[in-house]
Design a protein around this nucleic acid. Structure first.
Lengths: 187, 187
DNA sequence: CGCGACGTTGATTTGCCTCAACGATTGTGG
DNA sequence: CCACAATCGTTGAGGCAAATCAACGTCGCG
Protein backbone atom coordinates (compact mmCIF):
# COMPACT_ATOMS: atom_id res chain seq x y z
CA UNK A 1 0.00 0.00 0.00
CA UNK A 2 1.15 3.52 -0.73
CA UNK A 3 0.26 6.91 0.71
CA UNK A 4 -2.57 7.47 -1.76
CA UNK A 5 -4.34 4.31 -0.72
CA UNK A 6 -3.64 5.08 2.90
CA UNK A 7 -5.39 8.43 2.53
CA UNK A 8 -8.28 6.85 0.66
CA UNK A 9 -9.09 4.70 3.66
CA UNK A 10 -10.17 7.86 5.46
CA UNK A 11 -11.18 10.52 2.91
CA UNK A 12 -11.89 10.60 -0.80
CA UNK A 13 -9.08 12.11 -2.81
CA UNK A 14 -8.75 12.68 -6.57
CA UNK A 15 -5.51 12.28 -8.49
CA UNK A 16 -5.14 16.04 -8.72
CA UNK A 17 -5.72 16.47 -5.03
CA UNK A 18 -3.18 13.80 -4.28
CA UNK A 19 -0.65 15.63 -6.47
CA UNK A 20 -1.37 18.75 -4.48
CA UNK A 21 -1.00 16.86 -1.22
CA UNK A 22 2.38 15.39 -2.08
CA UNK A 23 3.68 18.76 -3.32
CA UNK A 24 3.83 19.78 0.35
CA UNK A 25 5.89 16.76 1.35
CA UNK A 26 9.61 16.19 1.25
CA UNK A 27 11.27 12.79 1.16
CA UNK A 28 14.18 11.49 3.16
CA UNK A 29 16.00 8.19 3.57
CA UNK A 30 17.64 6.97 6.74
CA UNK A 31 20.03 4.13 7.39
CA UNK A 32 19.44 1.75 10.30
CA UNK A 33 19.95 3.26 13.78
CA UNK A 34 19.80 6.85 12.58
CA UNK A 35 18.02 9.44 14.67
CA UNK A 36 15.07 11.19 13.02
CA UNK A 37 14.54 13.32 16.13
CA UNK A 38 16.82 13.71 19.16
CA UNK A 39 16.31 14.84 22.76
CA UNK A 40 16.59 18.59 23.13
CA UNK A 41 15.68 19.35 19.52
CA UNK A 42 12.41 20.90 18.49
CA UNK A 43 10.30 18.69 16.25
CA UNK A 44 9.16 20.50 13.10
CA UNK A 45 7.59 17.68 11.10
CA UNK A 46 5.03 14.98 10.93
CA UNK A 47 6.63 11.85 9.50
CA UNK A 48 4.93 9.29 7.31
CA UNK A 49 6.85 6.05 7.09
CA UNK A 50 6.81 4.79 3.52
CA UNK A 51 8.92 1.78 4.37
CA UNK A 52 10.92 0.83 7.43
CA UNK A 53 10.64 0.87 11.18
CA UNK A 54 11.35 3.39 13.92
CA UNK A 55 11.18 3.36 17.69
CA UNK A 56 10.07 6.27 19.87
CA UNK A 57 11.85 6.25 23.25
CA UNK A 58 13.47 8.16 26.09
CA UNK A 59 15.80 7.35 28.95
CA UNK A 60 14.55 6.49 32.41
CA UNK A 61 17.34 6.40 34.98
CA UNK A 62 19.83 5.32 32.37
CA UNK A 63 17.64 2.74 30.65
CA UNK A 64 15.92 3.08 27.32
CA UNK A 65 12.14 3.14 27.61
CA UNK A 66 10.39 2.54 24.31
CA UNK A 67 6.86 3.94 24.05
CA UNK A 68 6.03 3.22 20.42
CA UNK A 69 7.14 1.49 17.31
CA UNK A 70 6.02 2.70 13.91
CA UNK A 71 6.29 0.85 10.62
CA UNK A 72 5.21 1.15 7.00
CA UNK A 73 2.20 3.44 6.53
CA UNK A 74 2.17 5.02 9.97
CA UNK A 75 2.33 8.69 10.79
CA UNK A 76 4.52 9.53 13.73
CA UNK A 77 5.87 12.64 15.43
CA UNK A 78 6.45 14.10 18.87
CA UNK A 79 3.19 16.03 19.18
CA UNK A 80 4.23 17.71 22.39
CA UNK A 81 7.32 19.18 20.78
CA UNK A 82 5.65 19.91 17.44
CA UNK A 83 2.51 21.59 18.72
CA UNK A 84 3.80 23.25 21.87
CA UNK A 85 7.14 24.28 20.39
CA UNK A 86 9.07 22.52 23.10
CA UNK A 87 12.45 20.81 22.99
CA UNK A 88 11.74 17.13 22.66
CA UNK A 89 12.10 14.71 25.58
CA UNK A 90 12.26 11.74 23.29
CA UNK A 91 14.25 10.15 20.48
CA UNK A 92 12.83 8.79 17.25
CA UNK A 93 15.34 6.41 15.75
CA UNK A 94 15.22 3.96 12.88
CA UNK A 95 15.72 0.28 13.66
CA UNK A 96 16.22 -0.57 9.97
CA UNK A 97 16.74 1.40 6.73
CA UNK A 98 13.71 3.66 6.50
CA UNK A 99 12.16 6.01 3.98
CA UNK A 100 9.83 8.76 5.12
CA UNK A 101 7.75 11.61 3.83
CA UNK A 102 8.11 14.72 5.95
CA UNK A 103 5.36 17.30 6.37
CA UNK A 104 6.64 20.43 8.08
CA UNK A 105 4.52 22.34 10.57
CA UNK A 106 4.34 25.29 8.20
CA UNK A 107 3.49 23.17 5.18
CA UNK A 108 0.84 21.39 7.19
CA UNK A 109 -0.94 24.70 7.73
CA UNK A 110 -0.56 25.66 4.09
CA UNK A 111 -1.81 22.26 3.01
CA UNK A 112 -4.87 22.62 5.24
CA UNK A 113 -5.67 25.88 3.44
CA UNK A 114 -4.98 24.48 -0.03
CA UNK A 115 -6.82 21.22 0.60
CA UNK A 116 -9.23 21.60 3.53
CA UNK A 117 -10.03 17.91 3.72
CA UNK A 118 -6.54 17.53 5.19
CA UNK A 119 -8.06 18.68 8.48
CA UNK A 120 -10.56 15.87 8.26
CA UNK A 121 -7.91 13.32 7.34
CA UNK A 122 -5.76 14.16 10.32
CA UNK A 123 -8.74 14.42 12.63
CA UNK A 124 -9.62 10.86 11.71
CA UNK A 125 -6.01 9.68 12.00
CA UNK A 126 -5.84 11.14 15.50
CA UNK A 127 -9.11 9.53 16.50
CA UNK A 128 -7.80 6.16 15.40
CA UNK A 129 -4.58 6.77 17.31
CA UNK A 130 -6.70 7.59 20.35
CA UNK A 131 -8.57 4.30 20.04
CA UNK A 132 -5.27 2.43 19.81
CA UNK A 133 -4.02 4.25 22.88
CA UNK A 134 -7.14 3.32 24.80
CA UNK A 135 -6.65 -0.34 23.91
CA UNK A 136 -3.05 -0.07 25.04
CA UNK A 137 -4.24 1.25 28.37
CA UNK A 138 -6.67 -1.63 28.84
CA UNK A 139 -3.84 -3.99 27.99
CA UNK A 140 -1.50 -2.37 30.53
CA UNK A 141 -4.03 -2.26 33.35
CA UNK A 142 -5.72 -5.60 32.93
CA UNK A 143 -3.05 -8.10 31.94
CA UNK A 144 0.02 -9.45 33.71
CA UNK A 145 3.33 -8.94 31.94
CA UNK A 146 3.29 -12.54 30.83
CA UNK A 147 -0.17 -12.17 29.31
CA UNK A 148 0.86 -8.94 27.62
CA UNK A 149 3.84 -10.62 26.03
CA UNK A 150 1.82 -13.57 24.77
CA UNK A 151 -0.91 -11.34 23.36
CA UNK A 152 1.63 -9.06 21.78
CA UNK A 153 3.51 -11.74 19.86
CA UNK A 154 0.17 -13.22 18.82
CA UNK A 155 -1.14 -9.97 17.37
CA UNK A 156 2.12 -8.42 16.17
CA UNK A 157 4.12 -11.27 14.73
CA UNK A 158 5.64 -8.98 12.11
CA UNK A 159 7.12 -6.76 14.81
CA UNK A 160 8.62 -9.66 16.66
CA UNK A 161 10.62 -10.54 13.59
CA UNK A 162 11.75 -6.98 12.93
CA UNK A 163 13.01 -5.77 16.30
CA UNK A 164 15.34 -7.44 18.81
CA UNK A 165 13.94 -8.98 21.93
CA UNK A 166 15.34 -6.39 24.30
CA UNK A 167 13.36 -3.70 22.49
CA UNK A 168 10.16 -5.68 22.84
CA UNK A 169 10.94 -6.03 26.53
CA UNK A 170 11.37 -2.28 26.85
CA UNK A 171 8.15 -1.61 24.93
CA UNK A 172 6.28 -4.01 27.20
CA UNK A 173 7.80 -2.43 30.28
CA UNK A 174 9.64 -5.53 31.45
CA UNK A 175 13.25 -6.70 31.60
CA UNK A 176 14.88 -8.75 28.82
CA UNK A 177 15.51 -11.47 31.42
CA UNK A 178 11.82 -11.75 32.10
CA UNK A 179 10.95 -12.18 28.41
CA UNK A 180 13.59 -14.83 28.21
CA UNK A 181 12.07 -16.72 31.12
CA UNK A 182 8.59 -16.57 29.60
CA UNK A 183 9.93 -17.90 26.30
CA UNK A 184 11.67 -20.83 27.95
CA UNK A 185 8.45 -21.64 29.80
CA UNK A 186 6.39 -21.65 26.61
CA UNK A 187 8.07 -24.41 24.60
CA UNK B 1 -15.21 29.13 31.35
CA UNK B 2 -17.97 28.14 28.96
CA UNK B 3 -18.04 26.24 25.68
CA UNK B 4 -17.56 29.38 23.60
CA UNK B 5 -14.34 30.26 25.37
CA UNK B 6 -13.26 26.64 25.25
CA UNK B 7 -13.63 26.65 21.46
CA UNK B 8 -11.84 29.99 21.17
CA UNK B 9 -8.74 28.46 22.68
CA UNK B 10 -8.35 26.39 19.53
CA UNK B 11 -10.11 28.14 16.64
CA UNK B 12 -11.60 31.56 16.02
CA UNK B 13 -15.37 31.59 16.15
CA UNK B 14 -17.84 34.43 15.68
CA UNK B 15 -21.05 34.80 17.65
CA UNK B 16 -23.07 33.66 14.65
CA UNK B 17 -20.87 30.65 14.15
CA UNK B 18 -21.17 29.76 17.81
CA UNK B 19 -24.96 29.97 17.50
CA UNK B 20 -24.73 27.60 14.57
CA UNK B 21 -22.44 25.28 16.51
CA UNK B 22 -24.75 25.04 19.52
CA UNK B 23 -27.79 24.47 17.32
CA UNK B 24 -26.41 20.97 16.69
CA UNK B 25 -26.08 20.20 20.39
CA UNK B 26 -28.59 18.87 22.87
CA UNK B 27 -28.39 19.30 26.61
CA UNK B 28 -28.88 16.79 29.34
CA UNK B 29 -28.56 16.70 33.13
CA UNK B 30 -27.57 13.69 35.18
CA UNK B 31 -27.74 13.01 38.89
CA UNK B 32 -24.75 11.54 40.70
CA UNK B 33 -23.94 7.90 39.85
CA UNK B 34 -26.01 7.86 36.69
CA UNK B 35 -24.73 6.02 33.64
CA UNK B 36 -24.20 8.13 30.53
CA UNK B 37 -23.08 5.07 28.57
CA UNK B 38 -23.31 1.41 29.57
CA UNK B 39 -21.53 -1.78 28.52
CA UNK B 40 -23.17 -3.38 25.51
CA UNK B 41 -24.73 -0.17 24.23
CA UNK B 42 -23.56 1.61 21.13
CA UNK B 43 -22.25 5.09 21.77
CA UNK B 44 -23.86 7.68 19.49
CA UNK B 45 -22.57 10.93 20.95
CA UNK B 46 -19.60 13.02 21.86
CA UNK B 47 -20.17 14.53 25.30
CA UNK B 48 -18.97 17.91 26.45
CA UNK B 49 -19.09 18.29 30.22
CA UNK B 50 -20.42 21.72 31.10
CA UNK B 51 -20.20 21.04 34.80
CA UNK B 52 -19.62 17.90 36.80
CA UNK B 53 -17.46 14.83 36.79
CA UNK B 54 -17.62 11.41 35.17
CA UNK B 55 -15.50 8.31 35.26
CA UNK B 56 -14.78 6.01 32.32
CA UNK B 57 -14.29 2.40 33.42
CA UNK B 58 -14.80 -1.30 32.79
CA UNK B 59 -14.65 -4.47 34.84
CA UNK B 60 -11.54 -6.60 35.07
CA UNK B 61 -12.22 -9.95 36.75
CA UNK B 62 -14.95 -8.43 38.85
CA UNK B 63 -13.13 -5.25 39.81
CA UNK B 64 -13.75 -1.80 38.44
CA UNK B 65 -10.85 -0.46 36.41
CA UNK B 66 -11.06 3.27 35.85
CA UNK B 67 -9.24 4.54 32.75
CA UNK B 68 -10.24 8.22 32.75
CA UNK B 69 -11.93 10.93 34.68
CA UNK B 70 -13.42 13.92 32.90
CA UNK B 71 -14.57 17.16 34.47
CA UNK B 72 -15.82 20.59 33.47
CA UNK B 73 -14.89 21.57 29.91
CA UNK B 74 -13.71 18.18 28.72
CA UNK B 75 -15.01 16.27 25.74
CA UNK B 76 -15.40 12.56 26.34
CA UNK B 77 -16.82 9.57 24.50
CA UNK B 78 -16.06 5.95 23.72
CA UNK B 79 -14.36 6.49 20.36
CA UNK B 80 -14.14 2.80 19.63
CA UNK B 81 -17.88 2.37 19.97
CA UNK B 82 -18.75 5.69 18.31
CA UNK B 83 -16.49 5.42 15.28
CA UNK B 84 -16.48 1.67 14.70
CA UNK B 85 -20.15 1.18 15.54
CA UNK B 86 -19.37 -1.39 18.19
CA UNK B 87 -21.16 -2.19 21.42
CA UNK B 88 -19.24 -0.46 24.14
CA UNK B 89 -16.93 -2.33 26.51
CA UNK B 90 -16.96 0.46 29.00
CA UNK B 91 -19.20 2.48 31.28
CA UNK B 92 -19.28 6.25 31.54
CA UNK B 93 -20.89 7.20 34.84
CA UNK B 94 -21.25 10.46 36.72
CA UNK B 95 -19.60 10.75 40.13
CA UNK B 96 -21.55 13.93 40.94
CA UNK B 97 -24.49 15.84 39.41
CA UNK B 98 -23.38 16.61 35.87
CA UNK B 99 -24.61 18.67 32.94
CA UNK B 100 -23.50 17.83 29.44
CA UNK B 101 -23.90 18.92 25.85
CA UNK B 102 -24.37 16.00 23.50
CA UNK B 103 -23.26 16.00 19.88
CA UNK B 104 -24.65 13.03 17.97
CA UNK B 105 -22.61 11.24 15.34
CA UNK B 106 -25.00 12.39 12.65
CA UNK B 107 -25.06 15.99 13.86
CA UNK B 108 -21.30 15.97 14.03
CA UNK B 109 -21.14 15.23 10.32
CA UNK B 110 -23.77 17.85 9.55
CA UNK B 111 -21.96 20.37 11.69
CA UNK B 112 -18.71 19.69 9.84
CA UNK B 113 -20.50 20.51 6.60
CA UNK B 114 -22.22 23.60 7.99
CA UNK B 115 -19.13 24.87 9.78
CA UNK B 116 -15.99 23.30 8.31
CA UNK B 117 -13.71 24.64 11.03
CA UNK B 118 -15.31 22.02 13.26
CA UNK B 119 -12.95 19.54 11.63
CA UNK B 120 -10.02 21.69 12.67
CA UNK B 121 -11.35 22.12 16.20
CA UNK B 122 -11.72 18.41 16.76
CA UNK B 123 -8.41 17.66 15.06
CA UNK B 124 -6.73 19.92 17.59
CA UNK B 125 -8.71 18.50 20.50
CA UNK B 126 -7.62 15.01 19.51
CA UNK B 127 -3.99 16.07 19.19
CA UNK B 128 -4.08 17.49 22.69
CA UNK B 129 -5.69 14.31 23.96
CA UNK B 130 -2.89 12.38 22.29
CA UNK B 131 -0.27 14.48 24.07
CA UNK B 132 -1.99 13.85 27.39
CA UNK B 133 -2.06 10.14 26.63
CA UNK B 134 1.65 10.16 25.86
CA UNK B 135 2.38 11.83 29.18
CA UNK B 136 0.23 9.24 30.90
CA UNK B 137 2.31 6.51 29.29
CA UNK B 138 5.57 8.08 30.47
CA UNK B 139 4.04 8.30 33.91
CA UNK B 140 3.01 4.64 33.90
CA UNK B 141 6.29 3.28 32.58
CA UNK B 142 8.74 5.42 34.49
CA UNK B 143 7.34 5.87 37.98
CA UNK B 144 6.60 3.47 40.81
CA UNK B 145 3.04 3.42 42.07
CA UNK B 146 4.07 5.49 45.03
CA UNK B 147 5.66 8.15 42.83
CA UNK B 148 2.60 8.14 40.60
CA UNK B 149 0.34 8.75 43.54
CA UNK B 150 2.44 11.61 44.89
CA UNK B 151 2.72 13.27 41.49
CA UNK B 152 -0.97 12.81 40.86
CA UNK B 153 -2.16 14.48 44.04
CA UNK B 154 0.37 17.25 43.46
CA UNK B 155 -0.86 18.01 39.94
CA UNK B 156 -4.55 17.14 40.32
CA UNK B 157 -5.54 18.41 43.72
CA UNK B 158 -9.03 19.30 42.50
CA UNK B 159 -9.64 15.68 41.51
CA UNK B 160 -8.51 14.37 44.85
CA UNK B 161 -11.22 16.38 46.53
CA UNK B 162 -13.93 15.36 44.10
CA UNK B 163 -13.58 11.59 43.90
CA UNK B 164 -13.22 9.00 46.66
CA UNK B 165 -9.88 7.41 47.35
CA UNK B 166 -10.79 4.01 46.04
CA UNK B 167 -11.49 5.53 42.62
CA UNK B 168 -8.10 7.20 42.58
CA UNK B 169 -6.59 3.85 43.48
CA UNK B 170 -8.37 2.21 40.56
CA UNK B 171 -7.31 4.98 38.18
CA UNK B 172 -3.70 4.61 39.31
CA UNK B 173 -3.88 0.84 38.95
CA UNK B 174 -3.29 0.03 42.61
CA UNK B 175 -5.34 -1.22 45.54
CA UNK B 176 -7.06 1.11 48.00
CA UNK B 177 -4.99 -0.49 50.75
CA UNK B 178 -1.79 0.52 49.05
CA UNK B 179 -2.88 4.17 48.75
CA UNK B 180 -3.78 4.08 52.40
CA UNK B 181 -0.30 2.85 53.30
CA UNK B 182 1.39 5.55 51.23
CA UNK B 183 -0.73 8.20 52.92
CA UNK B 184 0.13 6.99 56.39
CA UNK B 185 3.82 7.04 55.43
CA UNK B 186 3.64 10.63 54.18
CA UNK B 187 2.61 12.53 57.32
C1' DC C 1 40.08 -14.71 15.62
C1' DG C 2 38.46 -11.92 19.29
C1' DC C 3 35.33 -8.61 20.85
C1' DG C 4 30.91 -6.65 21.79
C1' DA C 5 26.04 -7.14 21.54
C1' DC C 6 22.36 -10.08 22.60
C1' DG C 7 20.13 -13.75 24.97
C1' DT C 8 19.81 -17.30 28.88
C1' DT C 9 19.70 -19.09 33.56
C1' DG C 10 19.63 -19.09 38.59
C1' DA C 11 19.67 -16.84 43.37
C1' DT C 12 17.94 -13.21 45.80
C1' DT C 13 15.19 -9.07 46.66
C1' DT C 14 11.31 -6.00 46.48
C1' DG C 15 7.03 -3.56 45.41
C1' DC C 16 2.62 -4.30 45.56
C1' DC C 17 -1.31 -7.57 46.16
C1' DT C 18 -4.40 -10.53 48.87
C1' DC C 19 -6.84 -11.53 52.75
C1' DA C 20 -8.67 -10.54 57.13
C1' DA C 21 -9.99 -7.75 60.88
C1' DC C 22 -11.08 -3.56 62.54
C1' DG C 23 -12.41 1.96 62.83
C1' DA C 24 -14.91 5.87 61.01
C1' DT C 25 -18.44 7.98 58.59
C1' DT C 26 -22.76 8.33 56.27
C1' DG C 27 -27.45 7.68 55.43
C1' DT C 28 -31.71 5.39 56.08
C1' DG C 29 -35.75 3.26 58.26
C1' DG C 30 -38.12 2.32 62.54
C1' DC D 1 -33.60 10.89 66.85
C1' DC D 2 -31.35 6.89 67.49
C1' DA D 3 -29.81 2.13 65.72
C1' DC D 4 -28.05 -0.28 62.41
C1' DA D 5 -26.15 -1.34 58.00
C1' DA D 6 -23.48 -0.13 54.33
C1' DT D 7 -19.67 2.17 52.55
C1' DC D 8 -15.14 3.79 52.89
C1' DG D 9 -10.61 3.92 54.84
C1' DT D 10 -6.81 1.81 57.90
C1' DT D 11 -3.57 -1.60 59.58
C1' DG D 12 -0.93 -5.87 59.69
C1' DA D 13 0.61 -10.69 58.10
C1' DG D 14 1.82 -13.31 54.43
C1' DG D 15 2.43 -14.25 49.39
C1' DC D 16 3.62 -13.62 44.54
C1' DA D 17 5.10 -11.47 40.13
C1' DA D 18 8.70 -9.36 38.27
C1' DA D 19 13.15 -6.78 39.15
C1' DT D 20 17.97 -6.97 40.21
C1' DC D 21 22.37 -8.87 40.08
C1' DA D 22 25.75 -11.93 38.44
C1' DA D 23 27.60 -15.44 35.57
C1' DC D 24 27.73 -17.68 31.42
C1' DG D 25 26.55 -19.10 26.31
C1' DT D 26 26.21 -17.62 21.50
C1' DC D 27 26.31 -15.25 17.49
C1' DG D 28 27.68 -11.75 14.02
C1' DC D 29 31.02 -8.60 12.59
C1' DG D 30 35.34 -5.73 12.25
Amino acid sequence: MDLKNYIKRYVEISDDEYELFTSFLTQKSFKAKEKILDIGNRCHHRFYIKKGCVRFFSYNKGNEQIYHFAIDNWWITDYNSLLNNRPSNIIIETTEPTEVYMLSKQNFELLCLALPKTERLFRIIMERAYIAFQKRLEFLYNLTSEEQYKDFIQDNSEFVQRVPQYMLASYLGVTPEFISKIRSKIE
